[in-house]
Write a protein that binds this DNA or RNA. Sequence first.
RNA 1: UGCCUCGUGGCCAAGCGGUAAGGCACCACACUUUGACUGUGGCAUGCGCUAGUUCGAAUCUAGCCGAGGCAG
Length: 365
Amino acid sequence: MKVVIGMSGGVDSSVAAIRLKQQGYEVIGLFMRNWDTSINQDILGNPNLNNPICPQEADYNDALKVCKKLDIPLHRVDFIKEYWDNVFNYFLEELKTGRTPNPDIMCNKYIKFDLFVKEALKLQADYIATGHYAQIINGKLLKAIDLNKDQTYFLSQLNKEQLHKVLFPIGDLNKKQVREIAYKYELITANKKDSTGICFIGERNFTKFLANYLPNQIGDIINIDTKEILGKHIGLMYYTIGQRRGLAIGGTTKRMYACGKDLTKNILYVCIGANNPYLYSDQAIIEQINWFDNTVHNCSAKFRYRQNDQKVQWEYLDDGNVLVSYNNLKAITPGQACVFYLDNLCLGGGIIKEVRKNNQKLWYL
RNA sequence: UGCCUCGUGGCCAAGCGGUAAGGCACCACACUUUGACUGUGGCAUGCGCUAGUUCGAAUCUAGCCGAGGCAG
């Protein structure tokens, strides 16, 4: 059986490749490059501009070394235009509407588990594999054994067909074990730091990064309790609900958080205090819902990556969207994914469209 | 014009003769495949300015500058 594995140049995919070999598959590596700093005008806030070799190429070199060591071939494909069209454009359009998108979820849906798969099929793959921390058992998507690294949140927009031919070889390992294996095989990636930031792009100063694509739009910051103007913001797209840092307003005893936006008046609403009622809600409407299993209405959910599972109930609305009810949660943010779980089983997910409290849409969101 | 009060880091604010608390903001780091949240650390050789008194002043005195207030 032939498996094409996405090699990122990181430790996880390296070890995933090892495990596939151990399991007797014929393993073929495929490296993707989806972001180009100069083509994509990624200038402001880019910490790697002066590097002699860009991070994507450094990653490719690492992947190449690992593949050589493991004696597997490495192919390469660029989806720079496709990434822009399917992921980054979505990302920017969402930001323009004041929402907080999750580009990596769309990257998985349109790039890693679509275009990548098609490319793998060209190589006569029977299966494709990635270094995600997640498990597929009997066709069901389950959280990784290492709950701290679990990435099912990012896989919640995949459909069952996409999962059909996928293997997650390290989903049953802890991160520590993964590194131990890499170390044992003397892989160059064994001690490589986990990558963060938007997938394929990397760590950025977010405000400066966005300024490359979305111009500043200065407006008032208003205390939602007192309606007092407290200062100026530089553009609503630069802030997310529940955000504290970057507001640049001092003088208060308690911390201040972004809690709402008015697109038409270009107002950023803030509130004082981490427990301010304006930060809380008890219902949300979820759109673009994607179910693996829609039979369990009492379950749990995450509304943001790394949030603890929250007890929720859901029901269908007439338009096919889903109404989720929960008990007073903080900083639920339109544009972010809501992903449903029953224990470790991922039931599906969608995108937060509307946030509600006391049976009403929050007027300030 | 006279009298009174007040001027401490970006903001708020302790200290009131013994050698600059704290909070917010900001910065760095940790955490993290989404922008968070959270945590840890850093952040005034100087307290409007200039002279004095004193072993020693942000703290006392005088003048000046500035912000308020009362009287006219």
